[in-house]
Design a protein around this nucleic acid. Structure first.
Lengths: 278, 278
DNA sequence: TTGACAAATGACCACTTGGTCATTAGTATA
DNA sequence: TATACTAATGACCAAGTGGTCATTTGTCAA
């Protein structure tokens, strides 16, 4: 295991237990069995560490969900159940991550972290939305935005149960139960609150465009992580284009499609789509 | 306005913006226009300040809801809608409180705060439960615990909307929308996940009994806040009994009933009922 | 004007924090 | 063995923390 991984796993435990701010770099180094200097060889700052952790979790989670939504074997009825199952299973498997994520998302001390949280949230929204379209189509035209919120509400309160209590739970039953509830709401709820217009307002709120500078930096970091591949090459070209704006829209769109296929950089694709206004 | 109130209001703003840990006593004193020494004349510590804030919010909120549930004018159909309305209205009115509460509840740095959060949560549960009983009775016998979680899920996601976006919202429409959803679930949902047994397990989890010492202290503090009244007298008697255990169960129960009537110390009643195992 | 008392101040304390960097240990090549 | 290199160390730093307390200020009655 690389030193970086060692530190991340070690810190994750502490963050999940005590929270980010309450955990000192000192504690992390002791718990990892390394020196303070060694820590700063792997991470430029404490902030960079938590960003790396959150990134890893988001990538992992999106990758899990992505596989599911793309799988053509998921016939209508089962899709919703599997969505819940994947969600909770992922939360359970990476419960330390999930705890840190939940705890630190509320605490908006870091501008970059808020933005990341918001983007993650919007990604989830999109996945749910496409699922609802697939399942109910026109029928939920006016209630779909409320359904998103209801589903996220279910996810929130029920995750708490197995994140913060140590009880063995019947995950299958939970998912069947939530599927039934969601289905009920989708089929019979008739008084929407969140209109498309309102929803758009939320989305735009605090959507201060990223600067070329910021997005270039993020891409550069991802490039370093990747080994040679179509994906990496696409990112390199895109990074250049963000600064120079010389490629045709078709090419840009194609390049983004290339990286969008890989779950581990799907949210960079997201940033880029936003950046190019596609 | 008392100096204590001044500090509390001033600190509340800062906590809502930056969070508790990220706000220094220095900042609070500057923002209040007082000296550091003056701060410590009003509060023994920074922790005591936030506890006072959370207390104030909880009392306020419980008092709002309490008035509603006790009001006999609320015929069946309207009760649910008014419950949502009161909740959101209260959150909106005290949005700074609500923000601090949401932010700091997740951050379990302070043992006393976690416990307070849990008790608040259980109080809400009880209110919802009695409402469900009143509205649907036997019909929700097996699904009522799930309904609690669904309602809390709704409360959670929809509060976020007006806590963290500055958009004018039609609160009435929101409440009608949620009432419809809740009613749908109550009447048609048939696959429960949270059984009574499971629910009890959650409740007991981390319910480390309070010591006489702790509960006496809390009562003593409340006594100081109150002016002379039946309520205050009852508390004084109860405080003595917590230590000496000399009163008969009937008297104790009666005294608790006395304070339970006043919303502003309802949650002390809660502690006592737990303490005496009633 | 004096004296007594409470209210308020802010310099000060011990301590912890995130972060740095001169120094050392370890290792591979020549 | 000598050289060159990176990996790792931990003493150290400035900044900031929550909290204290000798001192000053303000406000009364006598």
């Amino acid at each position: 295991m690389s030193k970086k991984q060692l530190i991340m796993e070690s810190a994750l435990e502490l963050f999940a237990k005590q929270g980010f701010e309450a955990t000192s770099v000192q504690q992390i180094t002791v718990h990892s069995g390394i020196s303070k200097g060694a820590f700063y060889l792997s991470f430029k700052s404490k902030d960079e560490l938590i960003m790396a952790l959150i990134d890893q979790f988001m990538d992992q989670f999106v990758s899990d969900i992505d596989r599911l939504v793309k799988d053509p074997n998921n016939t209508g009825g089962e899709l919703l159940r599997k969505f819940y199952y994947t969600t909770f299973h992922s939360f359970q498997k990476h419960s330390d991550f999930a705890k840190v994520f939940i705890k630190e998302q509320a605490h908006s001390f870091n501008e970059e972290l808020i933005s990341k949280g918001r983007q993650f949230d919007q990604l989830i929204d999109d996945i749910i939305l496409s699922m609802l379209d697939q399942l109910y189509g026109e029928a939920v035209q006016h209630t779909k935005y409320d359904l998103i919120y209801c589903i996220k509400g279910f996810m929130h309160v029920y995750s708490h149960i197995f994140l913060f209590f140590n009880v063995p739970l019947d995950l299958n039953l939970l998912c069947r139960s939530l599927t039934e509830k969601t289905d009920l709401l989708a089929k019979h709820s008739a008084i929407p609150f969140i209109t498309e217009e309102l929803y758009d307002t939320f989305r735009k709120a605090g959507h201060e465009e990223m600067t070329d500078r910021q997005i270039t930096e993020i891409i550069a970091q991802k490039i370093e992580e990747l080994e040679d591949s179509i994906e990496k090459e696409s990112l390199i070209l895109l990074k250049k284009d963000v600064q120079e704006r010389s490629l045709s829209p078709a090419i840009v769109q194609g390049l983004i499609a290339n990286i969008r296929n890989s779950p581990q950089s799907r949210w960079i694709a997201y940033l880029l789509l936003n950046f190019y206004d596609l």
